[in-house]
Computed example of a mutant assay.
Amino acid sequence: MKIIDWYILKRFLVTFMFTLLILIPIAIAIDISEKIDNFLEHVNLSVYEIIDQYYINFTIYYTNTFMPLALFIAVILFTSKLSSNTEIIAITNAKISFTRFLYPYFIGATIVTVISLMMNHFVVPSSSKERKKFEKEYIKNKTQKNQLKFVTNFSLQLTDSTYIYIRSFNTESNSGYDFTSEVYDGLKLKSKLSADNIRYNSKDSVFTLRNWRKRQIYRDRDSIFYGSKIDTVFNFTAKDLIYQSALAQEMPSDELIKFIDISKKRGIKNLNAYLVELHKRTSLPIASYILTIIAVALSFRKKRGGTGFNLAIGVGVMFVYVFLMKIAEVLGAVAGVNSFFYVWIPNIIFGALAIYLYLNARK
């Protein structure tokens, strides 16, 4: 690397860190203003607990979320500064092409991308789990807690031949009612086990059924058994009954992939919310390269409006990108669509824009 490369890379990283250090305190201040009443409701909740259990994890999550935005703004800011100081003119006069000029930018974008990928796939999920645990305990209202607490009308395929159905299940008490398990031989029903109540014992992974009835179907006759209580084992746990997109944010990528594979085998119809979360963990960091090209192409020429004009355009472009990303996430979570394609749509659209701006800037 040449001296000019180190110079640009250093300015790149310093401005990027400076932008993050501006955005994160703003996000924390807004969040505190929204949740201060929730904190004050709990007299035993100390400031240390709020910082340690919530705001440290909050900072980790939003630092990772703001990385592409901070990168984009940082590149516009210091490239506009280079342009306004006529430093880019000197670089151009030294016969350095626009492609070569991008070299240190891509090194900086690679550093940010690698850090973001590692955080997205491994660090942020564990941090989100702690943050959401705190929110569930101290911030969420009763209605929101009950939405996470109860699972209703749930069906699950345990094996190729075994299916279960539960009318209602409480994930906190690990108990529910109207349970049914059916075993098939092809399309023919072999046995059916029903119970008025079901409870899961997490210590020994045993289910206790009360007021149970079992119908065993043979070729020429049926047998019916019943009782007040029976302990049995099934190939699932109480955690498997909770299928919500929020839970995907709490799983490291290896655990999330395993969860999706098992759920597909069990016949869960719509896992797109989980697939969107998995694909987003890669697509958003990769966007750093695309946004870097756009930012440099928009700001490397000296304009009459200067840095403020470039920054205004950049914020507008970033707003459109975030808007498209949110729409793509919602559409990608719909059953029956290709979630991978929808998650990558913003990168595809802005990638085409980046190519156009790059080719135009080379001229």
Rank of each mutant, 00 (worst) to 15 (best):
S245D: 12
N153W: 00
K2G: 13
T307N: 13
A74Q: 07
A90G: 10
N272Q: 06
S283D: 10
K2W: 05
T99S: 14
V276N: 13
M251G: 06
D185Q: 11
Y177M: 12
V43F: 14
G267E: 07
R167F: 13
K190M: 00
I262T: 11
G314F: 02
N235G: 09
F225Q: 05
I91Y: 04
I88V: 10
G332S: 12
L278N: 02
T92K: 08
W212V: 07
V296E: 11
E255C: 00
S116P: 05
T15N: 01
K258M: 02
I327N: 03
Y48Q: 09
A328W: 01
A94P: 05
I36W: 09
V334C: 03
V14D: 14
S223F: 05
L359H: 11
G227P: 08
Y103A: 12
I60R: 09
F225S: 03
L13C: 09
N310P: 04
F259V: 04
M325L: 15
K192F: 00
N44Q: 15
Y226P: 05
I107A: 11
G314Q: 10
Y54K: 07
K265V: 06
N270S: 03
I3D: 13
S126G: 14
I26S: 12
I8A: 14
S228Y: 08
A312V: 02
L148G: 14
T65Q: 15
S83T: 02
R210W: 05
I24T: 04
T162Y: 00
T282Y: 06
S116N: 08
E41Y: 09
I22E: 00
G227R: 03
K132Q: 10
F234W: 15
T232V: 13
F122N: 07
I89K: 11
Y165I: 02
T171S: 13
D5R: 08
K136Y: 07
T99P: 06
L331V: 09
R221L: 06
V114N: 10
N360W: 05
I89D: 03
Q249T: 08
N270W: 00
I60M: 07
L256Y: 06
I30P: 13
L247M: 07
L23P: 00
L331A: 02
K192T: 01
T59A: 06
L102E: 12
I355S: 09
P25I: 01
Q147W: 07
P346F: 01
N197W: 13
I50E: 03
L117G: 07
